[in-house]
Nucleic acid binder design. Sequence first.
DNA 1: AGGAAAACTGTACGGTGTAAAGTACAGTCG
DNA 2: CGACTGTACTTTACACCGTACAGTTTTCCT
Lengths: 224, 224
Amino acid sequence: MSDEPATPSARGTLSREKVLRAAVAMADEAGGAVPSTRKLAERLGVRAMALYHHFKNKDELLDGMVDLVFAEVALPEPGEGWREGMRRRADSMRAALGRHPWAVGLMDSRVHPGAATLRHHDAVIGCLRADGFTIAGAAHAFSLLDSYIYGFAIQEAALPFDSSGGDDMEAVAAGVMAQAAGRFPHLTEMAVEHAMRPGYAYGEEFAIGLDLILDGMERRRADW
Amino acid sequence: MSDEPATPSARGTLSREKVLRAAVAMADEAGGAVPSTRKLAERLGVRAMALYHHFKNKDELLDGMVDLVFAEVALPEPGEGWREGMRRRADSMRAALGRHPWAVGLMDSRVHPGAATLRHHDAVIGCLRADGFTIAGAAHAFSLLDSYIYGFAIQEAALPFDSSGGDDMEAVAAGVMAQAAGRFPHLTEMAVEHAMRPGYAYGEEFAIGLDLILDGMERRRADW
DNA sequence: AGGAAAACTGTACGGTGTAAAGTACAGTCG
DNA sequence: CGACTGTACTTTACACCGTACAGTTTTCCT
């Protein structure tokens, strides 16, 4: 049972890329959690320690996984104006983080950006510079946009209910509201008269905030 | 050795609050990591399982720790205008996340906001509403500001060097730049001609982005 | 005084990442 | 061709993790 890797040699079954793809697939399936080395190895028909021939340690594997997510993000296209470019990559980045929610929790501990990550950053900065942003201005814009995108992903992940809309409010949220009812009037008001209304989906806030930021960038482009 | 809790009874040595304070202190000391139940218990002169009389599981303890961080954040004051209120709480929140960097990585998995967190949210929304923001407008503003604050904290945590300024670029960053040199010209340009310059500190980007956001909010306040 | 509830301890289980050493195959060189 | 070497995998083992479950006290309420 499950001793698939008891075959004398599983040589050649592994490679950095194969491992990373399997790890990402498993993390996606599990929802928010990265697989353990043993589970990942089992899926690959191999023993856990085999992974360590391709990755120095688990952290390096996580770096690779995050880089794979960055590789999915649509970069601004050459001819494209900065505003459309920024919007497109922002939407694309958010979508990628939506497909791979486990990446959000990893971002704050990834100190070693991979090749796709660097290429992504380079393309974003290049797009801004090509449209007249100064170096400092591009740095401001980049910091602001990325902060917003990652932060929004965090908030979406931390919502006690699904952000895609619908009235499927969980028991969790119900409990929160129960204790909040009398003591936090503004929060309660916003919840019952706005957020819990049928048509509301938190996800739509993303575009609204993004527009404000892009407008502000447009206005400051010259001074920055 | 370390059998402090071998005393027949350690009754009364624990309480929710004492445990949480110790846990926060240990996490702060460790830098970016939450203590294990055993280590935390040892510090409190108690065995690990004693913690489970005050917290259902570790997740609940983490919820409490994050709530303690929110409790440190300065709320907008009653008489204060929305702009100063928002700026003050943003700066204060960023400072709190700087003091407790482990909280950043926890935020995306905290689905159960505590009392301090709810009070914080309520105060922020209240401040906006008091200055004429509609419910929807306050929701937009809240989402945007919080996303920016959390996202900025993520980015600061993920920097391969200290964001407080100074030329203490690490070997990590050096390695990154080495491979980036030829392939990512815009990134390289920004790094060598801007970010690595003596006077630059990434942390200062926070205020710049925040100003842009507050300006945009001001402009939209009526329409939202 | 007695019994229940509360707050702690002991032990154990199944999981984690990974160090260290062993084994088998592939390729190169004399 | 055969030995040598390096590579890719396995085995075993360790320390640590969260926590279920079953005591053991101590305290408090009748």
